[in-house]
Amino acid sequence: MSDFSFAMLPGIETEEMIWLQELTKSYSAENKQRFLSVYQSRRKDPQTILICSLIGFVAVAGVQRFLLNQIAMGIVYVVTLGFCFVGTIIDAVNYRKMTWQYNKKEALASAALLGL
């Protein structure tokens, strides 16, 4: 399995790809494939998070927080209309950082789940 397999993930950026290659450099080809399949099922696409952030302006605020497993913040966003849209604007600007933090946590959890 080549390191270019990570490039097929939707919305992946260079920083994330380099980090994943470094994380999996000692894995066998079979373990990399197992890791990729688990990680791909848990990973969130940054564009999806951006779209959900923007939905907060016209519908329910906080959907992006629920997708990122931040349930308490999602409830706060729903109740406060995304902190009167200020939090929604901040999330729309910082969607890449929020997604990267979530994906990094999920990559480590995927490796731990597989015992790698």
Results as ranks from 00 to 15, higher is better:
residue 83 F to D: 13
residue 66 F to V: 10
residue 83 F to R: 13
residue 16 E to S: 04
residue 27 Y to I: 09
residue 30 E to Q: 13
residue 2 S to Y: 08
residue 28 S to D: 03
residue 88 T to W: 02
residue 40 Q to R: 15
residue 65 R to H: 13
residue 99 T to K: 01
residue 10 P to V: 15
residue 106 E to H: 07
residue 5 S to N: 07
residue 3 D to T: 08
residue 36 L to E: 00
residue 63 V to L: 12
residue 27 Y to S: 09
residue 73 M to L: 15
residue 43 R to Y: 00
residue 53 S to M: 05
residue 42 R to E: 09
residue 74 G to D: 02
residue 59 A to F: 15
residue 20 L to W: 02
residue 40 Q to F: 01
residue 16 E to N: 01
residue 93 V to H: 04
residue 81 L to M: 09
residue 73 M to C: 11
residue 1 M to K: 14
residue 79 V to F: 03
residue 108 L to F: 13
residue 102 Y to C: 10
residue 23 L to Y: 03
residue 92 A to W: 01
residue 34 R to S: 15
residue 38 V to K: 05
residue 33 Q to Y: 02
residue 90 I to P: 00
residue 113 L to R: 09
residue 70 Q to L: 05
residue 50 L to Y: 06
residue 27 Y to M: 14
residue 69 N to L: 06
residue 61 A to E: 09
residue 64 Q to M: 09
residue 93 V to R: 04
residue 34 R to W: 07
residue 34 R to M: 11
residue 47 Q to I: 14
residue 30 E to T: 14
residue 111 A to N: 03
residue 48 T to E: 09
residue 54 L to R: 01
residue 35 F to P: 01
residue 61 A to K: 04
residue 52 C to A: 13
residue 87 G to Y: 05
residue 74 G to K: 01
residue 60 V to A: 10
residue 29 A to S: 09
residue 1 M to L: 15
residue 46 P to C: 11
residue 35 F to I: 05
residue 65 R to Q: 13
residue 28 S to M: 11
residue 45 D to P: 03
residue 37 S to F: 08
residue 1 M to G: 14
residue 116 L to Q: 12
residue 24 T to S: 11
residue 24 T to G: 06
residue 91 D to V: 09
residue 67 L to S: 08
residue 32 K to I: 08
residue 86 V to R: 02
residue 88 T to G: 08
residue 42 R to H: 07
residue 93 V to T: 12
residue 97 K to D: 07
residue 92 A to K: 03
residue 103 N to S: 08
residue 49 I to F: 00
residue 4 F to I: 14
residue 3 D to R: 07
residue 50 L to I: 08
residue 102 Y to K: 06
residue 83 F to V: 15
residue 84 C to S: 08
residue 57 F to G: 12
residue 99 T to P: 01
residue 93 V to A: 09
residue 114 L to D: 08
residue 3 D to H: 06
residue 1 M to H: 12
residue 33 Q to W: 00
residue 40 Q to P: 06
residue 60 V to M: 09
residue 74 G to I: 02
residue 28 S to Y: 01
residue 71 I to N: 04
residue 48 T to M: 06
residue 69 N to A: 10
residue 45 D to V: 13
residue 43 R to A: 07
residue 7 A to I: 14
residue 10 P to D: 15
residue 73 M to Q: 14
residue 84 C to G: 06
residue 11 G to P: 01
residue 23 L to G: 02
residue 51 I to Q: 13
residue 100 W to C: 14
residue 18 I to G: 02
residue 30 E to H: 08
residue 68 L to K: 11
residue 2 S to D: 12
residue 105 K to C: 11
residue 36 L to N: 00
residue 69 N to R: 15
residue 94 N to Q: 12
residue 57 F to Y: 10
residue 95 Y to D: 08
residue 79 V to I: 10
residue 93 V to G: 03
residue 70 Q to W: 01
residue 54 L to W: 00
residue 48 T to Y: 00
residue 81 L to V: 10
residue 39 Y to R: 04
residue 53 S to R: 05
residue 47 Q to T: 13
residue 113 L to M: 14
residue 35 F to C: 04
residue 22 E to G: 10
residue 89 I to T: 14
residue 68 L to M: 14
residue 109 A to K: 15
residue 93 V to L: 06
residue 59 A to T: 08
residue 18 I to A: 11
residue 49 I to L: 05
residue 67 L to W: 06
residue 6 F to L: 11
residue 110 S to L: 04
residue 38 V to E: 07
residue 35 F to V: 05
residue 8 M to N: 13
residue 4 F to N: 12
